[in-house]
Design a protein around this nucleic acid. Structure first.
Lengths: 218, 218
DNA sequence: ATATAATGTGACCGAGTGGTCATGTGACCG
DNA sequence: CGGTCACATGACCACTCGGTCACATTATAT
């Protein structure tokens, strides 16, 4: 956590430092990110930085916390409807909201990705000890209730598919952001719909489900 | 490519340097990996290193090339049977072989993962220019022929699912290596079978397929 | 034995790192 | 006016980095 001195700063200066730091950690993994560059770009003295933050890690954890809060805020409304929808609909909304969040905060996504990449690095363990991979656990719970409700096959390896579903969220997001221009929400929803349909029915021809994913919803 | 001097070295010394370098790049991303540590652990003088390799990048690209060759050798027999099996069976064999390769060469996998993570770093672009993400293209071809053969639904977004299938290979491998002890090949095949079945039929309860994945094959 | 070519060696270089600290500055208080 | 306190500052520290280079050592050939 930053020191009092940081929060005593005028809001604009706080925001400037925050933005510059976000850009730095979005561009470089933790070990590579440079405090020197941050202070230079934020136009503050090196000494001042260390009056705002304990050290580099302090800044980094602060950024992660802010990012986590932002994402939670973003997903809260969707999770609020949890009981009203079936499993796959809820999943669709979670994915769509997650991707939308990624589109609006690409640098946050970069930072999260770089964290995931740093598996094995000391900082990764430190972060994850307090986090315990919340996403995977959430999906595990959702999967189990979905199985109870008869919405999902009961013969699957729940932890494995929870892991897959959590990770695929990132995959679909990356693919969407990199390969599909943000033409509009229609594209996003269509992509997510197609993916959810895949989760539900697979890609095998045998399923014979109605291919209702294209243009079915506005 | 290393200089002649490197290949003039006694095979043991070449192997030692190779192993030490592999360990270093498995533990640290490219920018973080230290030539100093490599020469120290391989017990050669700094100057000698630069008589074997042009620079750090030269060493790194050499490792990647060797890794690529090793993996190709590993997958060659499976790909040889490409025409004899249906799409999902071929996919299962590819996944199983890939995971087996990962189990036997965990440090190679680490290195590949660290490369993929370094997206945006200058070294990544440089490597990928010569590589063009062969895996994704391979799966795209396989998917198209599978659609022609009526094995796969024709209404899917082929590039997206090629990307997903390529990436999920890594996911399943990571999950298997981290969460399932290597009790034996049975476990591996069972895991992969379950995953392929998911690809084919999804996890929706409606599919009603026979749950033949457990223990169906020795 | 001598000349020549090939290879080994580690001190050294410039640059960058995270972090410290003595000093400077200015606002508030009595 | 003097004193105090919060904050600003950038020179500086010890360290690591990738890479170089003058020189020592060894192998080969004559």
């Amino acid at each position: 956590m930053p020191k009092e001195t940081f929060f005593n700063l005028p809001a604009e200066k706080q925001a400037l430092i925050f933005d510059v730091a976000i850009a730095e950690f979005a561009l470089h993994p933790y070990e590579q990110a440079s405090v020197n560059r941050v202070v230079a770009r934020a136009d503050i003295a090196k000494g001042s930085f260390y009056q705002y933050f304990e050290n580099k890690k302090d800044l980094y954890l602060y950024l992660l916390q802010r990012i986590g809060e932002a994402k939670l805020d973003y997903l809260a409304p969707v999770m609020g409807n949890a009981r009203q929808h079936d499993f796959f609909t809820l999943l669709r909304d979670l994915y769509a909201a997650g991707i939308q969040f990624g589109i609006e905060n690409p640098r946050y996504v970069e930072i999260s990705k770089r964290l995931m990449e740093s598996k094995g690095s000391p900082i990764y363990t430190e972060v994850m000890e307090a986090n315990t991979s919340a996403a995977s656990e959430l999906f595990e719970t959702l999967l189990r209730t979905a199985i109870s409700n008869g919405e999902v096959r009961s013969d699957i390896d729940v932890p494995m598919f929870a892991y897959l579903i959590a990770s695929m969220n990132t995959l679909v997001m990356e693919y969407y952001i990199e390969h599909i221009a943000r033409v509009g929400d229609d594209q996003l929803l269509a992509t997510v719909e197609q993916f959810i349909d895949f989760l539900k029915n697979g890609i095998g021809a045998s399923a014979g489900k109605a291919p209702s994913t294209q243009g079915a919803l506005s």
